[in-house]
Nucleic acid binder design. Structure first.
Lengths: 334, 334
DNA sequence: CTGAAAGCGCTTACAG
DNA sequence: CTGAAAGCGCTTACAG
């Protein structure tokens, strides 16, 4: 199966050594090789439809030009958009991407990391899940180049590219306040993940800064597992208050989708009665009956920068760079 | 870098041959190996944190346990959902997936195929674009195992897993007719891709079968490149007719998203004035102001079956299987 | 300007 | 029950 043509075949056909064929096809020792011989080798390679066996090459060079990408779920639009950007960026540097979804599950990510390392990936781009700290320390110990994307762990000293979630959230809430709202709720994930906590911290800080009421009943935390029901429940509770909330911040794209879906079924006036701001873009925002303001993550920078940092760390594995990108608040309601 | 422990290191440590270590770690020759020695080898492997070098193994066995997945765009929800299913199914058989996006571009897919073959993937799952016929014949000629997914080419005799697009479309239109609609439009892609033509054929056949008017002005074809504007334009034209249409079939998920977005801005009553049926699920359907009926592709079967067929063809490369799955019409408007 | 040879880390007939 | 040896298809010092 596959293709049987090897350097040896070309060498025999042309009547030269394998060494020479290798040099020519890799454009090495350019100056010193007889032009005619070189051309003959190239021609023969083409005629025989030669293709390098990357596996053999990798074994020898100890370089696979492969990046392992681990996200929570490749079918989540946030991650698939990111994957596409990473793919394109990697391609520019002749890298190929293998991917896996961890489902925020430590065991699964452990397994993926194992598989990827066995396959000798040159490095990992990793959206690590809760409690990954020791796993990450392991990677560091093994000197596997990697960069975290989207997520970060204050106790782990490694490269990452993420959003400045605190500021993003803070700015969104300040915007809400400046629109005259005073009873501002937030729905976020119940999670120890630092970037998600930062979103909640930003929300609370902004309220405090402006001396607004912060009620624990207004900060709803939902589990990922049954987020649709949980968000629905949270919304119901929020709307049921005697004095209802007048604004809400959705802490992630899937929460927003679930929340908007629920609100669709209600007669609430948006944004008049309820001002909504969502983290992340998503199709659902466009289709909601009225425009929704949202916090736009710089996805392209997120993806490109993570590839850039990874390749850098593959080269000389000393540098640790931590990047916190600023979000853009996209305002649809003037 | 990476991990330096090889079979040789274990062999030396334990004082046996590399051969034996290989046998033990691969659970070969189970019966014939001294239990104690075997255990010692296993223990040492664990202690040294040994990891197989898959690259070396692949070179020797001529098997990488890797599938190359080529789709039009991994960030399209249809493909990312499919990718996730393929990932999970592949994982069951110890396969890893490397992916690439072709953007419906022959040059790009050519390049991806090249890269993947050089990397010795065991096979390809491929959503081929327009005019891929000769490329596919090439693959067949080179005996590269592959299965098409989503797409198919009548002139190319190869395995594929796809939707029965003709029937899906036909059934959807029959449903529309049975709901009393008579002026039924469709927006689809301008494309030579057979599965897309089948959708249009189904639409026309159903109309003819029921002796309904088929106006060429009602079958709009849009280009992928600027689909949002194109769909908008098509919708405007359809709505501008003196006698407006009373139903529309959107021929793909992105068309539906664009179409619904446009309709959101109009005072049209859906479904009373305009009954909408969409190909594929998408978030936008849920968020539209009224429920939208849609043609649901059996994504799971699509993904699982394509992996199954591919692995089968990797084993014994003779069988060609062509699968046309039935769509389900999901009716939200009773 | 060119080639013989070693070696990357495995697997697997073959021999004992 | 175990091991020496060949070989997968490359790259790359080294020698000439």
């Amino acid at each position: 199966m596959k293709n049987k043509i090897s350097l040896k075949d070309i060498a025999e056909k042309v009547g030269v050594s394998v060494t020479l064929v290798s040099y020519v096809l890799n454009n090495k020792m350019e100056g010193r090789i007889n032009k005619e011989v070189a051309q003959k080798i190239r021609d023969t390679a083409k005629k025989l439809n030669y293709r390098t066996n990357q596996i053999a090459k990798s074994l020898k060079t100890n370089k696979t030009n492969t990046i392992g990408l681990i996200v929570a779920d490749i079918s989540n639009p946030f991650y698939s958009a990111l994957a596409r950007i990473i793919e394109d960026e990697a391609e520019k540097f002749n890298y190929t991407v293998i991917f896996g979804s961890s489902d925020e599950n430590l065991k699964k990510s452990e397994k993926l990391i194992d598989i990827f390392i066995n396959r000798q990936v040159d490095g990992l781009i990793y959206a690590a899940s809760e409690n990954s700290e020791s796993q990450l320390e392991d990677l560091i110990g093994q000197k596997i180049p990697f960069v975290l994307v989207d997520r970060y762990f204050p106790t782990v000293n490694c490269s990452y590219v993420a959003l400045d979630n605190y500021s993003a959230s803070y700015k969104a809430v300040e915007y809400i306040i400046q629109k005259g709202r005073r009873r501002i709720a937030m729905i976020g994930y119940k999670s120890a993940l630092h970037h998600l906590r930062d979103r909640k911290r930003g929300y609370i800080s902004a309220l405090k800064k402006h001396k607004l009421e912060t009620k624990s009943a207004w900060l709803k935390e939902v589990r990922r597992e049954d987020e649709i029901q949980q968000v629905e429940k949270a919304m119901m509770e929020l709307m049921a208050e005697k004095q209802p909330i007048d604004a809400i911040l959705f802490g992630a794209n899937r929460i927003a989708t679930a929340g908007l879906k629920y609100i669709s079924s209600l007669p609430v006036k948006v944004p008049d009665d309820l001002l909504i701001v969502s983290f992340d873009e998503s199709e659902s925002l466009d289709l909601f009956r009225s425009p929704i303001d949202y916090i736009k993550q710089p996805l392209r920078e997120l993806g490109e920068e993570s590839v850039r940092l990874l390749l850098q760390s593959i080269d000389k594995k000393t540098v640790i760079t931590q990047v916190n990108l600023q979000a853009e608040l996209v305002i649809k309601n003037k």
